[in-house]
Structure formats: C-alpha cells, structure tokens
C-alpha cells in the first residue's frame, strides 16, 4: 500500500508544532500501525531527518503506552484495541492518514506524538489505592467473601490500562471514564470501603485541578476505550461522589 501520512511534528513542549506530510510506499497490510511508523522512521533516519517520536512499549495491547489520534479517533477506527493492535489492513491503498497526539491541556505534548500523561499518575496518587499492611501480616485474598457480581464489575473496571483514549476521544477532554474506573475497582470491594469517602473526593479534586473538562455523557470514551470500560462506572462515581460530599 502507498499512503500519505499527515503527522504532527513538534520539537519540544515549548515550541509550536505543525502537521507535516510524508509519503510512505510498500506498506504491508499485515503490519501493525506502529510497525508502519517504525518503517517511516527508518526511512527518515536513512535520509538524515529527525525520526517521529511516539510512545510504545509492550506492543500487545496491555501497557497503554501507545497513544495516537488516528484519523480523528484515539487508536484509529477499529474498536477495543490499542494502536499497536491496529493493523494496516484497516486502511486502503492511497489513503491519507492523520496522526496526532492525544490532545488535552492536562496531556501536554513532550515531543511530536508523545504526551505527558503524568496527570493520571497524580490522580492515582490522590486516592487510587487501598492501605494494606504488607509487613508480615498479609490477609489471605479469599478471607473476605466477595459476591461474584461485584467481583466481576470490579475486575471489569480494573482492566483500565490508563492509556488516555477516553480523554482524547472526549470533546471536553474529560477524564471521567479513567477516574471512575479507578474509583469503581475499589468501591465495589469490601477492601475499598474503608477509604471510599476520601478516595472519591480526593481523586475528583485532583482530576479537576489537572484541568480536564466536564463529562457531557456523549459516550465517546466508552466507544473508544480499548478495554471496554463502561459508562456505568461514571454513574457509580457520581453516586459515590455525591454521597461522600454529603458525609464529608
């Protein structure tokens, strides 16, 4: 396949960026999207040009590193996948593909397509944990019974890989799906109840301080989430937050 790539290039956080066009030929439909970018970078290296910086790590859809807004959608047009799982067979010969970084004030561009997602880490630090004594007094995982329904819902929420696609897809750059998944995975379990009030208040406060937008319930985040995190989690966080506000 021969393709035209329109890629966001920005040398560092302080500089202005712009879209630069690249032609790439002989792309195999069996390549992953990241393989295709590797191929482009090899060609740029050979020409003595600066390669395109992009995030990647596991390349098997579990780490959440690879970001990329591809043709106006996070991780491209396919569903329930990350960019490393997107294959070039999704595109046609002669296609023009826009490749941009995830856009949000809370995700500043570091270079080219790499954004700083440490705002997610700060939200996690604010309350995305349970306090368990691990110094020799660890309690057996099965000592506290958890009903299957709650365990399954908590596990579903815990599959969030923190990639930021929800923020990228949202017209408001809202982080509600991410934060609600991190709140829900504990809110549903007995181990998470003890710190439930502080957790939701602190995590939402941090989310707001980072500058993410509000939730308009468009549902774009749920559609674009590579792990299928449900909007139910946002409703649960709304309930948790309102009841925590009344208590606290």
């Amino acid at each position: 396949m021969n393709l035209t790539l329109k890629i966001w290039r920005q040398s560092d956080a302080g500089k202005k960026g712009r879209i630069v066009d690249y032609k790439i030929d002989d792309v195999s439909p069996d390549m992953s999207f990241l393989d295709m970018l590797d191929m482009l970078n090899e060609q740029l290296n050979n020409k003595g040009e600066e390669p395109v910086a992009f995030d990647h790590d596991c390349r098997e859809g579990i780490c959440g590193s690879c970001s990329l807004q591809i043709n106006g959608e996070p991780h491209g047009p396919d569903r329930m996948i990350t960019t490393c799982q997107l294959h070039m067979r999704t595109f046609k010969d002669g296609d023009t593909i826009y490749i941009e970084p995830f856009r949000a004030k809370a995700f500043p561009v570091i270079k080219d397509l790499i954004v700083d997602r440490s705002s997610f880490d700060r939200i996690q630090h604010a309350g995305g944990f349970i306090s368990v004594n691990t110094s020799g007094n660890t309690i057996d995982a099965n000592a506290i019974p958890v009903n299957k329904h709650d365990a399954d819902k908590a596990f579903d929420a815990a599959t969030c890989i923190g990639c930021g696609a929800c923020v990228a897809a949202c017209k408001n750059a809202s982080a509600m799906l991410f934060v609600s998944a991190k709140v829900s995975q504990f809110a549903l379990l007995p181990q998470g109840k003890i710190e439930a009030t502080d957790r939701v208040l602190n995590m939402v406060r941090q989310m707001d301080e980072e500058g993410f937008g509000n939730c308009s319930n468009t549902g774009a985040c749920e559609i674009e989430c590579p792990k299928g995190i449900s909007l139910e989690n946002i409703a649960r966080m709304n309930r948790e937050y309102m009841s925590a506000s009344l208590k606290g």
Binding site: K6, W8, I19, Q69, N71, G72, E73, P77, Y98, E100, R103, A104, K105, A106, A169, K171, N172, A173, S174, G211, F212, G213, N214, S216, N217, T218, G219, A220, I223, E224
Partner: peptide, 24 residues
Amino acid sequence: KNRNARKISYARYNGSANSSWMSR
C-alpha cells in the same frame, strides 16, 4: 471549562464515529 481543557484542537476530528450530534 470544557473549551479550556483542550487548547489545541485536532486537525482531524471524527466525533460522529463515537457520539451523537445532539450530545456534542
């Protein structure tokens, strides 16, 4: 607040792929 949350908009944005016109 929503507008401030994304200072630079996307060159290509495909909102209709994942949400309704009314909601956006």
